[in-house]
Design a protein around this nucleic acid. Sequence first.
DNA 1: GCAATCTGGTTTCATTTAGAAACCTTAGTC
DNA 2: GACTAAGGTTTCTAAATGAAACCAGATTGC
Lengths: 166, 166
Amino acid sequence: MKNSPDSPTKHAETPSTSKQASRQRLQDDPCSVARALSDVGDWWSLLIVRQAMYGTRRYVDFQQQLGIAKNILGDRLSRLVENEVLKKVDVGEHGQRFEYRLTPKGKDLFTVLVALRQWGDRWNRRDDEAPLRMVDRRLGQPLQNIQVLDAEGQPVGINDVLSLPR
Amino acid sequence: MKNSPDSPTKHAETPSTSKQASRQRLQDDPCSVARALSDVGDWWSLLIVRQAMYGTRRYVDFQQQLGIAKNILGDRLSRLVENEVLKKVDVGEHGQRFEYRLTPKGKDLFTVLVALRQWGDRWNRRDDEAPLRMVDRRLGQPLQNIQVLDAEGQPVGINDVLSLPR
DNA sequence: GCAATCTGGTTTCATTTAGAAACCTTAGTC
DNA sequence: GACTAAGGTTTCTAAATGAAACCAGATTGC
């Protein structure tokens, strides 16, 4: 309850300079992890990409399958298009029809999503759920666990790497 | 679920039932990707984990290195502890000293972070930046690109897998 | 012994964002 | 020409974020 005797001003002398959101600040971060997160680092974006990988392409389908508010979905889709993770394709024949399809950049998130899924399966498994559901088309068998490998193909963990400071 | 077309009230007859945030709803999602995101799916959590992998352990260091507001940092750290990604260790000898260290679950996010970093390096590269900085300790050479492999070790892409619906 | 300092927070308040529902627009369909 | 569907935008409220102020326990400095 002590009020310091000097500063009478409440706070915030410079309310500007904050640009916009974390996204903006991450966008120019020197670390590529931060920049990756500025593309897909919020609650919904990766879920939209996951859904796209399952084959979802249309606005209404994303909306219903994810249970996301329409305005937020619109915002996320346009940001993903802007960041070239999705592309918006006009397939209008009868009625207004657009499809949001994964770009190569978006498809390349496959690795990230599989890594995240496997991590979730390892550590947040739920007993009422089968642990794996993704199988490859050729063999019909579960995928291998994703690993980080060194130049010779040996698996490495967090303690085996040096992050050379720039 | 659907509101019958008569109700003339503006909106929100039941302002409750929304629990809290997306986190809460994702927590019980049947998809492990969603549950993984409920642990580390916001703007800051993965950056905190990344920083922890670089060796950061103390509150003030996280705060300064990430430029995160202290209240947000406190919230994220306690949530990460709650989700068993970090553990809070009292190392108090002189003064108040705590360390936030990665748990095995947290260390296992290494794969996800490397996947994300490599994706960022591939698609959001900045010209003023060396493309890779992580080398393994044993060979001193860059790591391999992370791949998704089938049971026989062949790389598979998004179009080569079937996601068996549960 | 007492003020200054360091660490690790919590509180307060203004700004942003998310979310729900209503509304709008274009284009078929009946 | 009314109705429906897709694909949004607008409006409004609730919640999260962020900056700075404040606080408390222990330690050093004197």
